[in-house]
Design a protein around this nucleic acid. Structure first.
Length: 598
RNA sequence: GGGCGCGUAGCCUAGUCUGGAUAGGGCACCGGGUUCCUAACCCGGCGGUCGAGGGUUCAAAUCCCUCCGCGCCCGCCA
């Protein structure tokens, strides 16, 4: 039911002809007993969840009134007029419901053919002529990547993949903040020779530095101590403020951007292990340099609710935009003429609108008010377009504390991955004594990163996640490794099927065992799931799908012999090939590595 | 205090947009399964006042109201 309203297309969705046939048959049935019906309303009510009752269920309560009949009576009356056809093998009345069963041979024929023909494109749909931008991650380059922010990166990267598969060309963007106090603080500390560092800061890094350590680890280490030092030393704060001002005026200290870039490079190395990469990096200072911030400020000065404060600052009264009353006045320009983050963000969004029809921002819930403010400012300057916000809740630690970058007990992504790889390595070694160390490391890395990505993407973004090692690095049940393992099984069967080769000819009539029929039905669901995930930005649906498919394949695997069967063998091998392709495509959408052995 | 989000078995979670049949999974726990294609697996069992209360409806986890609990935000920070 949930995924039913995604637009089905017969060329990319194996379920589409069956759904169309059911709707047409219902329309005809209603018409034959003189009850008006609208196909889109019929489709909206159709429940495509599937189950023992059938592949599509249709509740009749809503039509009972217009028909002047009790629902169950209407069901009996309708079922008498409906004939099974090529797509629909069975129609049954059950209480107030009509249950439709798809013709398994027909569905199997179409699904396997589509999967084997389309290959890596199976699950993907044709474009609709819209270009999208997904901005995600955008963590300030002040130190190692923190696991609190990794949820943003995983949701954003998966959404970008899902949108691409759904036919929308996507540009992923990382917005790099080189304008604020945080970046200035990095420049402040690192542009000084080490012996000019305040003793407190020197003490904080003493003995911790290791030769060859990652640049983000190295450059980020003094940051917490520097932050604390600055709070207590106004004269040092003034130095940082001077750097902010230089940056604002377009002449930052020479090493400013290079420092940000080097830390960013280290952070990106960590993200790359999770197969998260970006199409573009957008530097905040660019919008100052090209004058677009100035133009935004001019438009804000002339905005309907602009307020010119006594000290020269400019603000916008946003009380008519539903903002909390304590924050109804948003300052957009300081008294000294410098800009603020929100104003620069308006300029950034105008630049996005000029290139993309769909603009998506992935934001932590702490940025919710910022999102509302941004909308209000866009309205104030007469811009009618708006970004879509995908808001996710924080990842917290078990004692309830928020995983803050400022905390001393921070958990870095690098630590998480190191621990994950170590656990995965132990797991591989207990199962496979025959492998060389290179193979072990390769598998451990893939299993570890798959486990981490899956664990974080599996939960709906609006739900909080409590971080526990034993859950995050689970390799069983609903996990990334479970899906990877199922994929490996399919690969393994195909490797041993010497007699059968692509394009894997098959006879759909030989694939009618219950486990085969069920498996086909899950395989056929990928395109619909991708559409749903992209349209609703519910990337966790892809994680659920990958598990469902792996799960059903395992049931099939245990119930039905493939290589040891005789007449069915070629067809079953083709089915396994379709599973490998479909599960592989689903894992690609999730950014989870594929393995051919575990 | 105000705004926003969340609340589903011991733990985690799907379903909530667009109300429909006995609320799907996973972990843990209990009982089975490997001379056979990788047991990171499979089969069976146990476990639910869908936070509480009211309302709307033929029908409510889903919509409306009130309340409770948890989280986040409410800077001339980003």
């Amino acid at each position: 039911m949930t995924e039913a309203s995604a637009t089905p297309s017969a060329s990319t969705d194996p379920w589409a002809p069956f759904v169309a046939a059911v709707v047409a048959s219902l329309a005809e049935g209603f018409s034959s007993i003189g009850v008006p019906s609208d196909p889109s309303a019929l489709l909206a009510q159709l429940d495509l969840e599937g189950g023992p009752q059938g592949d599509a269920a249709f509740p009749l309560h809503r039509w009972a009134g217009p028909a002047g009949l009790a629902p169950a009576v209407l069901a009996e009356r309708l079922v008498a007029t409906l004939q099974p056809g090529a797509e629909v093998s069975e129609v049954r009345a059950s209480g107030a419901y009509l249950n439709f069963r798809a013709d398994t041979v027909r569905l199997t024929e179409r699904t396997l053919r589509m999967v084997l023909d389309r290959g890596a494109r199976y699950g993907h749909s044709d474009g609709v002529g819209i270009a999208a931008c997904v901005e995600h991650t955008s963590a300030n380059p002040t130190g190692p990547f923190h696991i609190g922010r990794v949820r943003n990166a995983i949701i954003g990267d998966t959404l970008a993949r899902a949108l691409r598969a759904a036919g929308t060309p996507v540009t992923s963007q990382y917005y790099v903040d080189d304008m604020g106090r945080q970046a200035a603080m990095i420049t402040w500390i690192w542009s000084k020779p080490r012996d000019e560092w305040p003793p407190e800061i020197r003490a904080a890094v003493a003995g911790l530095e290791v030769a060859g350590e990652k640049v983000d680890t190295h450059r980020g280490r003094p940051y917490p101590a520097a932050s604390a030092y600055l709070k207590a030393h106004p004269e040092a704060q003034a130095e940082v403020a001077a750097i902010v001002l230089q940056t604002e005026s377009g002449s930052p200290p020479p090493q400013h951007r290079q420092l940000s870039q080097s830390i960013l490079d280290g952070m990106l190395q960590s993200l790359a292990r999770l197969h998260i990469e970006f199409d573009e990096f957008v530097w905040e200072s660019d919008f100052l340099r090209d004058g677009s911030v100035e133009r935004v400020l001019e438009r804000l000065h002339a905005a309907p609710h602009a307020v010119h404060e006594a000290n020269g600052a400019w603000a916008i009264d946003t009380s008519s935009y539903g903002l909390p009353k304590e924050s109804k006045t948003v300052v957009v320009q300081r008294g000294d003429g410098t800009s603020l983050y929100v104003s620069r963000d308006v300029a950034y969004h105008l630049s996005k609108f000029s290139r993309f029809q769909r603009v998506v921002d992935v934001l932590g819930q702490d940025h919710r008010l910022h999102a509302v403010t941004l909308d209000a400012l866009l309205a104030e300057i007469g811009e009618s377009r708006r970004p879509e916000f995908v808001i996710y809740q924080d990842i917290t630690v078990p004692d309830g504390g928020r995983m803050s970058t400022r905390g001393g007990s921070a958990v870095w992504l690098d630590n998480l991955l190191a621990e994950a790889v170590e656990r995965a390595r132990r797991e591989v070694l207990t199962r496979r004594e025959d492998l060389g160390s290179g193979a072990v490391e390769h598998i451990a890395e893939a299993v570890a990163t798959g486990a981490v990505r899956y664990h974080i993407v599996r939960v709906a973004s609006e739900k909080p996640v409590v971080f526990r090692w034993e859950d995050a690095l689970s390799f069983e049940g609903r996990s990334g490794p479970f899906c990877q393992y199922s994929y490996v099984r399919a690969v393994s069967v195909l490797r041993k099927a010497d007699a059968e080769q692509p394009p894997y000819p098959f006879d759909a009539a030989r694939l009618t065992d219950p486990e085969e029929a069920d498996l086909i039905r899950v395989i056929a669901r990928l395109p619909r799931t991708v559409q749903y995930a992209a349209r609703r930005s519910h990337v966790h649906a892809l994680a659920g799908y990958a598990h469902d498919l792996a799960d059903q394949f395992n049931r099939f695997y245990h119930a039905v012999p493939v290589l040891r069967s005789v007449e069915q063998r070629p067809s079953r091998v083709a089915l396994v090939a379709a599973v490998r392709q479909t599960l592989g495509n689903a894992l690609d959408l999730l950014g989870i590595p594929l393995l051919d052995a575990m």
